[in-house]
Design a protein around this nucleic acid. Structure first.
Lengths: 213, 213
DNA sequence: TCCCTGTTGTTACGGATTTCACAACCGTAG
DNA sequence: CTACGGTTGTGAAATCCGTAACAACAGGGA
């Protein structure tokens, strides 16, 4: 029924939602696709088309009710509830992720943390005890977790991903510098600032830094 | 000449390069588009097509020379030299970025760090003195910097971006939870794990966590 | 030398995504 | 009650991108 909605569209919805939340904070009650588009560098037509996959939310001549559309988007994306997250890897990166304050307010709660380093196991990170990675499967089978976050070295990541998948996890946020292999029904998003930089250098490599002197 | 190469293609090249580097570490000297594709979940045709934008690097019947192709990709992407990076914002996130060990080995060197918090200014992060954000423009005009990394709160990010752009920076890695507005000639990549998670929830929201019990 | 296997580079096709363009419509003003 | 400015929702057109398919060719073996 809702099938065949392009993934690119889904990826834009959270961006719209974020902008709407910002508009709401500014006290705006109504916004047009035009105005929203300017704010997001997206064409108005794109916004309207994206939204049209899910229903009719606007009012001709006026635009969209900011809070109303935000609520709709949150419902569509499943953001109207809490999500339970397990973090694997508490090295420097893993710790930074655990301590990052941006997840909780959005409903993503880190309920379990794992590592294979004996020195880390048993310590606490953000009020959560670090468990032995060896207990990953056991724990996940007994405690519902929705999303797995992988923050282990690249060479260990595929194994962690495999175990998350075989334990039934269907969404993985991967910080490891590799391309995880997962079944089609598992959602994966990769976070890799190095790749991001490496693609930008293509565009700036021709000119001298800072426009030369 | 090299014009009209789709951005999606450029974004895949670093992924290919990373896989080739891994293959080289494993001692592989030759790889086919088939094999590389399996590793990256990309069709062989896609890889060949992407590469064909830049030249002919393979040998029929054999495949690609791993080190040779890697060198070519690095050259195409401009990774065959060092890049100077300025980091703005040394809160929790900024510090984690500064201390993240993944940039330096890839040739991205953080040469300057800025913050507006008087308590942070003058301290050092990773051997680099934290400068006053007020001196951003002055510093950038006197010291060549290629890439700006924005790690300030969302409400302050656009201002920082504007100042980076007006100082001549042409590539920005944005960690702030907003969509920066920049001129067309400036490359921007956004890193936002929350958005990544928020798009995944769409796909998993129908089923009970962990397949229910 | 000739044939066979394997793999590239490339063109043509088809599908997916974005953009365009406009009828339908809302609310307000006269 | 009608006209008008503004904006949506959407089908059609245009563009962009990925896939398929195959001729060309390298290397090895008989």
């Amino acid at each position: 029924m809702t099938l065949e909605i392009p993934e690119v569209v889904i990826n834009r919805l959270p961006v719209y939602a974020r902008a709407l939340a910002a508009l709401a904070m500014d006290g705006e009650t109504v916004v047009s696709s035009q105005t929203l588009g300017e704010r997001l560098d997206v064409t108005p037509a794109q916004i309207r088309k994206d939204l049209s996959y899910f229903g009719r939310f606007g009012k001709q001549g006026r635009g969209y009710n900011v809070l109303g559309l935000l609520a709709k988007l949150r419902e569509i994306l499943g953001l109207d509830r809490k999500w339970r997250v397990a973090l694997v890897g508490v090295g420097r990166l893993g710790q930074a992720i655990a301590e990052y304050g941006g997840f909780e307010p959005q409903g993503f709660q880190i309920v379990a943390v794992f590592d294979s380093d004996p020195a880390a196991i048993g310590t606490t990170v953000k009020d959560v005890v670090v468990r032995d990675s060896a207990d990953l499967d056991t724990f996940l089978r007994q405690n519902p977790v929705d999303i797995g976050v992988v923050a282990v070295p690249g060479h260990a990541a595929q194994q962690v991903v495999d175990r998350l998948v075989s334990a039934g996890i269907r969404a993985i946020l991967n910080y490891a510098p590799m391309t995880p292999h997962v079944p089609a029904e598992v959602a994966v998003r990769n976070i890799d600032p190095v790749l991001a930089m490496q693609s930008m250098t293509f565009y700036i490599k021709r000119q001298d830094p800072m426009g030369a002197k």
